[in-house]
């Protein structure tokens, strides 16, 4: 009986643990992509700023 219950808890842990691992993997991937998106947006913003300052300098010349 106790052997069966231990086995049952192990199976339960496997099912719910597996689901939790998948959820965590989704969150991890989401965070990675969001970080990449933010970095890219910052990069673009700085490039745009550089372009603008370059065009101001050109206009001053």
């Amino acid at each position: 009986m106790s052997h069966q219950l231990g086995y049952l808890w192990a199976v339960t842990l496997l099912v719910w643990g597996g689901t939790c691992l998948y959820v965590m993997s989704l969150w991890r991937r989401q965070r990675q992509v969001e970080r990449a998106l933010r970095e890219w947006q910052l990069e673009q913003a700085s490039v745009q700023k550089c372009d603008e300052s370059a065009s101001f300098t050109a206009a001053d010349d």
């Binding site: 998948y22 959820v23 989704l26 991937r29 969001e34 998106l37």
Partner: peptide, 14 residues
């Protein structure tokens, strides 16, 4: 349903 939402959101962000 929750997993589907999370996975679709990830794909959309990507």
């Amino acid at each position: 349903v929750l997993l589907l939402y999370l996975r679709v959101r990830l794909e959309w962000t990507r």
